[in-house]
Amino acid sequence: MPYEWVRKPEGASEGSEAPFPSPTAELHLWPHRSLPRRGFAWVIAIMATFLALPLLEVLGTPLLWGLLPFVLLAGAGLWLALKRSYRDGQLIEELHLTPESIRLTRHNTRAPRQVWEANPYWVVLHLHPTEGPVPQYLTLSGAGREVELGAFLTPEERTRLHGELAQALARIRSG
């Protein structure tokens, strides 16, 4: 699951998993990583092998020097694309929820950090089934702004998170 509640509810044992924490909560969200570091190395090794096979046939001929720049360009392109994907995957969203405030901090990889803060009593949690850039678009409204939460999660994960966050907000508001 590419999100987790970091702070457990009071009274919860160390090994128990609660659906939401109280009275304060901390939630971390991050994009799903479909290719682990070990897989990255395998992809590069397989790509290098398959790009080297045609070069073996033309080894020692002038044609090698005509093909080599394109092979190196293809290899470098794949390497850079995967590296950028990993760098973009370092994005993290942190949601801190206390009785006094709710604060969402988005640590971007190529842009400044973004922070939104509001009073949890006045925050409205929305799950837009079809309106929005992604299905089951999850937003928080408060302090004159509406911010998205977990746009990189799957629709099922956003739906589940909506329920957990609604319960956490209700618990904070009730006392």
Rank of each mutant, 00 (worst) to 15 (best):
R106Q: 13
R106G: 04
P62C: 02
L68Q: 08
W122M: 02
R110F: 15
H96Y: 06
G60N: 09
F50H: 04
W42K: 03
R103K: 14
W122L: 06
Q136K: 12
F50K: 02
P69K: 03
L68H: 05
A81G: 04
A74P: 01
L72A: 11
R87I: 10
N108G: 05
I102G: 04
L55H: 07
L95C: 09
L91V: 07
E100S: 11
R106D: 04
L78H: 08
G77W: 11
D88E: 15
L63N: 05
Y121D: 12
W65T: 05
R113T: 15
K83P: 00
L97V: 12
P133E: 12
A111H: 13
Y137K: 06
I46F: 12
T98A: 12
F70K: 03
N119P: 01
E117Q: 15
G39E: 09
P129F: 01
L51K: 01
G132M: 07
E94T: 15
I46S: 07
H96K: 14
R113G: 01
P133S: 10
A48D: 09
G66K: 08
L104P: 05
I92T: 14
P112C: 05
R110M: 10
Q114Y: 11
P99I: 10
L51Q: 07
V43K: 01
A52F: 06
T61L: 12
T105E: 12
T105K: 11
R113F: 01
A76H: 00
P62G: 03
E117C: 08
W42Q: 02
R113P: 02
Q114H: 13
A52R: 01
W65V: 06
K83G: 03
E100M: 02
R37P: 02
W122T: 08
L97I: 13
L125D: 04
I44L: 15
Y121P: 00
W79T: 13
L95D: 06
E93P: 02
L55P: 07
N108C: 09
G60D: 10
L51G: 03
L91E: 09
H96R: 15
L51E: 11
